[in-house]
């Protein structure tokens, strides 16, 4: 190996590099999370006793949801080969919202025996099952078909939602609105939080395990096959895992926009396109961003987090696009 080449090639992606990156991401998130604990509704300072415990719970839940959304965002964008893909593209959000609205409207159906979180999870997963079953052709998932079916199912869910909105009473609408605005819920049971946490950890480890292959999924099917990747199996496994992570996070948070879309792009600005580096970095960014948004929401008198991420995410995404274009032009 010539010296000049050895210098230009980065170090091999070994287990040490992976562990160092994960540790760096965890420390970065922890610093942000500790700062967020200091933010209260009336002022900034280190809290004590019950207040600290409460803020810790909120910060952890926010981080968990943000991390799950970013994890799904990276996976969706890689598998669907679409930089605008976000975790709600396949209908998790519209399905969960519909289920929650149904749950809040009726006490006669089986949904009434469930918690709101369980209803949201079931709605999200049922929509995903419909999208996947309509998209596959002889067991193969085509990114473009998946994307189109997702858009159509979302639109149909939206129409149903409007119909229910039309039929529902003021009380039902107000009850469902709290979920739809995308606010982290504060009446969660420890079991619910642990379930989401477990689902996130399993999804993270599985997708990190596939992260090398996710790089190949950006290529054409023929190229992926000739590089030894079973592309159909990879698409199924990664999309199902990422979608379940989204559904379980959404069950406790409602639809929170832009985190799953922006964090992968922000991560790309920091570490490039390689999914092996991008996954942990985007996950840490997602966790940190939603923790910050949650702290800001506290300071601003409990403005729903989804509203904040929507207001801040849009312009921020435009800024990222502008930065990216400037950088690309600079290198040409």
């Amino acid at each position: 190996m010539s010296k000049s080449t050895a210098r230009r090639l980065p170090r091999p992606w070994g287990i040490e590099t992976l562990l160092i990156l994960i540790a760096t991401c965890a420390i970065g998130w922890a610093v942000v999370a500790i700062a967020c604990l200091m933010v209260g509704s009336t002022g900034i300072g280190w809290p004590n006793g019950d207040v600290l415990e409460l803020r810790m719970e909120w910060t952890l839940v926010a981080s968990l949801v943000g991390a799950s959304l970013a994890l799904s965002g990276v996976t969706y964008q890689a598998v669907l080969r679409n930089p605008l893909a976000d975790p709600y593209l396949l209908g998790v959000s519209s399905g969960a919202s519909l289920a929650v609205f149904l749950w809040s409207m009726t006490s006669a159906t089986i949904l009434a025996h469930l918690s709101q979180q369980a209803a949201a999870f079931i709605g999200g997963v049922a929509t995903l099952a419909i999208v996947f079953s309509l998209s596959h052709r002889r067991g193969k998932l085509e990114p473009l078909t998946l994307l189109l079916v997702g858009v159509i199912v979302n639109a149909i869910n939206g129409a149903f939602f409007l119909l229910l909105f039309h039929l529902g009473g003021q009380q039902d609408i107000a009850r469902a609105f709290r979920f739809l605005a995308g606010g982290l819920q504060q009446d969660l049971t420890p079991a619910q939080v642990w379930l989401v946490c477990g689902s996130f950890v399993i999804s993270l480890v599985s997708l990190l395990g596939m992260s090398g292959q996710l790089n190949i999924s950006m290529l054409s099917e023929a190229e992926a096959q000739s590089l030894g990747v079973r592309i159909d199996r990879l698409r199924w496994a990664s999309m199902v895992i990422a979608s379940l992570a989204t559904a379980s996070a959404m069950a406790i948070s409602g639809p929170i926009g832009f985190v799953g879309l922006v964090c992968p792009h922000l991560g790309r600005l920091l570490v490039g396109n390689d999914q092996r580096r991008l996954l942990p970095v985007a996950v840490a960014l997602g966790a940190a961003l939603l923790a910050i948004a949650d702290a800001a929401s506290r300071r601003l008198g409990q403005v729903p987090v989804g509203v904040l991420t929507g207001f801040l995410g849009g312009p921020f995404f435009l800024f990222l696009l502008w930065q990216n274009r400037k950088r690309a032009e600079g290198q040409r």
Binding site: L18, L208, I216
Partner: peptide, 14 residues
């Protein structure tokens, strides 16, 4: 990327 068929889980390279 050409070495993908030699990588182990987590995309680990040698």
């Amino acid at each position: 990327l050409g070495r993908a068929c030699y990588w182990s889980a987590f995309g680990l390279e040698s």
